[in-house]
Design a protein around this nucleic acid. Structure first.
Lengths: 138, 138
DNA sequence: TATGCTAATGCAACATTGTTGCAAAATAAT
DNA sequence: ATTATTTTGCAACAATGTTGCATTAGCATA
C-alpha cells in the first residue's frame, strides 16, 4: 500500500511545506530515479537550490528516498519502498542504469545473491549496479 | 605478470612524461583505489590539477585504470588487471568500500553471480559495491 | 483564530570539483 | 639537431555542493 504525500511527511515527523510536497510528488510521479538537476529543472525557479539539497538530505535521513551508486558516479535518488521508512537497511539493492537514455530503475524483484567475502571483511550493504540498454532503448 | 611503469605507458602508445610516471607509480604502490584528491595530495604541488584530471581520463580510456562506483558517489580509480588493457569489459567487478577508513578494495577473486533481469533489459556491465568494515577496521 | 515557539526557507558567500581554449614546454620522430 | 606532435600549465569558467544567518512559514497552544 502506498501513502499519500501529506501522510508520508507527517508519518516522518516533517512539517508539510511547499517544497517538500512538490519534490515528493516528483518522485512519486517518476518511474525512475532523479538527480538533483532533474528536480531543479522540473520545479522551475520555485525553490532555492539550497532548499532542494536540504530537502533531499532530509528525505534520505528519514528513509523516504535513497541514493543510488551509478557507474558514472552521478548522484541519483529514488523512492524507498515502505519497508525503508521502518528502519530496514538497503541490503542487496539492485539498480539498472540505461547507457542510452540515462534512466535509472530500481529492480525491486531482482534479488542480489549473497557473496562470500574474504576473511576480515564484513558487509553492511551491497549495491548492485547494472548498466546496459533498458526496455525503451532496445 | 606485471609490467613496469615505462613499459605500461609505451604499450599503450602514451608519451612517457613525469606526471604519467608519477601517477601510475602511485597506483602501483597503493593497495586500494585512489580518488582524484588522493593523487593531488600525494603528488604535492608537482602537477597542475588539470593535468591530473587529463591523465586519469587518458588512463581510463586506455584501460590502465577503471572507475569504481561507490555508495557515496565519490569518484575513485583503481588499476586494471592485465586483461583490461587487452580490451576486456569489466563485467562483474566486485569492490569493497570501508565505511570507517574509506579504503576501497578490488576483490578480484570474489565472483559476482549472473542476475536474471526483467524482459527488455540487457546488461553490458555489472558493478557490485559492498560497504562495511574492512580487515583493518574490525 | 490569534499568539508564540520551532522549524524551514532564501540569500549571500564560499569551497570543491570538473571542463575548455590556448600558448609554452616537453617528448618523439626524422 | 631539427621539426612535428603531444602534453602541460595557466586562466577562466561552469557545475555542484556547503554554511551562516536573517526572514518566513508551519505548528501547537491557548
Amino acid at each position: 500500500m502506498r501513502y499519500g504525500i501529506n501522510e508520508t511527511l507527517k508519518k516522518n515527523q516533517l512539517s508539510v511545506t511547499d517544497s517538500r510536497k512538490k519534490i515528493l510528488e516528483l518522485f512519486m510521479r517518476s518511474n525512475g530515479a532523479l538527480a538533483h538537476a532533474d528536480i531543479e529543472h522540473q520545479s522551475g525557479t520555485e525553490f532555492d537550490r539550497v532548499t532542494i539539497y536540504r530537502t533531499l538530505q532530509t528525505f534520505v535521513e528519514k528513509g523516504i528516498i535513497h541514493t543510488i551508486p551509478t557507474a558514472d558516479n552521478s548522484v541519483r535518488y529514488a523512492l524507498c519502498k515502505d519497508e525503508c521508512s521502518e528502519g530496514h537497511h538497503h541490503d542487496n539493492h539492485v539498480h539498472f542504469m540505461c547507457d542510452d537514455c540515462g534512466t535509472t530503475y530500481c529492480l525491486d524483484h531482482v534479488i542480489a545473491p549473497q557473496l562470500s567475502l574474504p576473511d576480515g571483511f564484513n558487509a553492511t550493504r551491497t549495491d548492485v549496479v547494472v548498466s546496459g540498454k533498458c526496455k525503451n532503448c532496445e
